[in-house]
Every structure is written in C-alpha cells, then in structure tokens.
C-alpha cells in the first residue's frame, strides 16, 4: 500500500469509527464568546446538557468560540458532523443559527434567547427558546419592596440593552405593584459587553445605591453582580442574584435569586428530540411554564418575610392567569 493510500485508509477508519458510534443521540452545544464559566446563564445551559447526558444517555460535545465568526463556524462543524441536535446559547446566535439551519435542513437546532424578528420566518428546523424574565423579575420586585425597611430598592443592570430592560421593567413594576410608595434606583454598568464582566464597577454602583438609602439591590449584570454582592456584604445590605441561584456567592446577603431555568429548557429540548417530538417554532417560557422563577429554599426562607412571600405568590397566580400583564421595556 502506498503511503498515500494508507493515509486515506486511516481516515476511512476514522470516519467509520465515528459513524459506528452514532447510535446514541449526539448533541452539540456552542457557548457565547467567552461564555463558559460565567456561573450563570451559560453554565446553566451546560448543566442541562450534563443532566441530559446522565439521564438520557446522549453523547455531548461543546465549543466555546473566540470570535464572532466562530459562532457559525462552530455550529457548522457540528452540523456537518453526525450531530442530531445543535444548540446555540444566547440571542447573538440568532443569525448564525438561521444560516446554518437553512444549509442543513435535516438537522435540528435550538437557540436560547433567540431574537424573533417579525419580518423574518424562523426556519422549520429551529426551536427558539424565549424566556419572560420580566415575570420573575416582577416577583423579585414584590419581594424586594416588601423586605425593604427603607422603602428604597436598587437595580443594577449590566449592559444597557433591551434584553436587560426586561429585568428592569419587571422589577420596577413588581415593586410598585406591591407598594406604590417604594422608590427604585436604577443604574447600568455600561454600554459595552464589558459591562457584564466588571465586578469593580458593580461594587461601585451598589455602594452608591446603598449610600442613597437602598437596602435591597437586584442585579442583572453577569459577573458584574459579584461586585454587588461584595457591596452588600460590606454595607450589611441585601442583594438579589440572577439567572442561577447565587446564594453561595455571598451567603446571608443574597435575599433570593431570580432564576432563568436555561438548564431545564435545554434538557427539555434534548428530551423531545430523543422522543422524536422535535418541533420548530418559538417556545416561550415564563412563570407558567416554570422557565423562570425565584429561589425560596432552606437557605433563604428565614430572610424573606412571610408577607413578601405571600404577596409574591399572589402575584404569581395573577400573572399565570394573565390578570397582570408585566411590562417588558
């Protein structure tokens, strides 16, 4: 055999080996640029993937791109391989998922926080996972307002973009609904993506809000929020986490966390794929679907006054029953 032929044979064996192992479902997940390890959104998605691996015996692979052009690059790498379902994490994948989904109509795609553009149709092989964070933020606003002794609460946003305005609007509305006299201080860490990774800035903003009299601060700002926790610890105030349960980042100072169950969403999509029930289109996840919620467990039960808990649960019922419509901007 000539060296060239043996080289070819080597790759034939490689690809044969790969297709032989194709029996279990294969799922590829692409993080946002620099997303992995954020202890929040991206990690939550990864937990869903890991759970699926354990409980559904799927095979998983993931890629964390380093630049914008790598998002499509990574999706295509999975799509052109033997993957059945490819998931992009973050609204920024919207365009990339659309393009790759069109190029690989037989493969299935999911995009968390997919940005729906009314002027464009979503390809049939794409599931757009949307969360109504304003609903859970509303409950957060209720709890904050009724826990606050100073009747002043704060909101620290990361980057000043529509996505974060949803948290802002829901929180504001909830606080005012619970107690119209409550004042809400609102600040954003910046206008660049760096605003999601700037704990020093977060601390500075939170300290200033505490100094202005706020005693509960809700953050929706990625790792910038770690600075908010730091400030709460220093000033003996209270902070509220976001996306994942952040209690452990500042035990005793995190009143609750407004969670977005990306893990559940990811897990569900995989489960449906495995059961042969994949169906394209938008899936909206709010309080009703348990896609968003707030934390109420042994750690923080004692910190949340009974009245606040009761009022929040009342709000939940009203929202689920569509008696309250929560603003999102």
């Amino acid at each position: 055999m000539s060296p060239k032929k043996s080289f070819l044979a080597f790759f034939l064996v490689c690809s044969l080996g790969a297709s032989a192992a194709a029996a279990p479902l294969k799922v590829g997940l692409v993080f946002d640029v620099g997303g992995r390890g954020d202890k929040s959104f991206n990690d939550s998605a990864f937990r869903g993937l890991e759970r699926a691996e354990k409980e559904l015996a799927i095979k998983k692979e993931y890629i964390e791109p380093t630049e914008a052009a790598d998002r499509e690059n990574a999706l295509r790498q999975f799509a052109s391989g033997d993957f059945d379902l490819i998931i992009g994490i973050g609204f920024i994948f919207t365009d990339d998922v659309n393009r790759v989904a069109k190029a690989f109509p037989k493969k299935h795609f999911a995009c968390v926080d997919y940005a729906v553009d009314p002027s464009k149709t979503i390809p049939g092989n794409v599931v757009a996972l949307k969360f109504r964070e304003q609903e859970s933020s509303f409950l957060g606003g209720v709890i904050a307002a009724l826990t606050s002794k100073t009747k002043k609460v704060g909101f620290v946003g990361g980057m000043d973009v529509p996505l974060i305005h949803k948290f802002d609007a829901g929180f504001n509305a909830g606080a005012k609904w619970a107690d119209p006299k409550v004042k809400v201080l609102v600040s954003y860490a910046g206008v660049t993506p760096e605003a999601f990774k700037d704990p020093a800035k977060g601390k500075e903003i939170a300290l200033s809000q505490f100094d202005q009299g706020a005693d509960v601060i809700y953050h929706a700002s990625g790792s910038t929020g770690l600075g908010v926790f730091e400030a709460a610890r220093e000033k003996h105030g209270l902070a509220m986490g976001v996306d994942s349960d952040q209690y452990k980042d500042a035990p005793g100072f995190v009143l609750t966390s407004i969670t977005k169950n990306v893990d559940n969403a990811v897990y569900d999509v995989i489960k449906r794929q495995q059961a042969g029930q994949f169906k394209g289109g938008v899936i909206e996840l709010g309080l009703k679907e348990k896609g968003v919620d707030y934390i109420y467990d042994d750690h923080n039960k004692a910190m949340i006054p009974a009245a606040a808990r009761a009022k929040a649960e009342e709000a939940r019922k009203l929202i689920v029953a569509k008696k309250i419509s929560v603003p999102f901007k």
Partner: peptide, 20 residues
Amino acid sequence: ALALTNYLISAHFHEPETIH
C-alpha cells in the same frame, strides 16, 4: 473606538433585538 462603536450601536444603529 470600542466604547464609542458599542455605544453608537446600542443607542442608535442597532437593528431591533440585535447588537448589529
């Protein structure tokens, strides 16, 4: 350049629900 383009995009030039 970074801050300015980011600001201009977020504030004026972005397409709805995107950062481009």
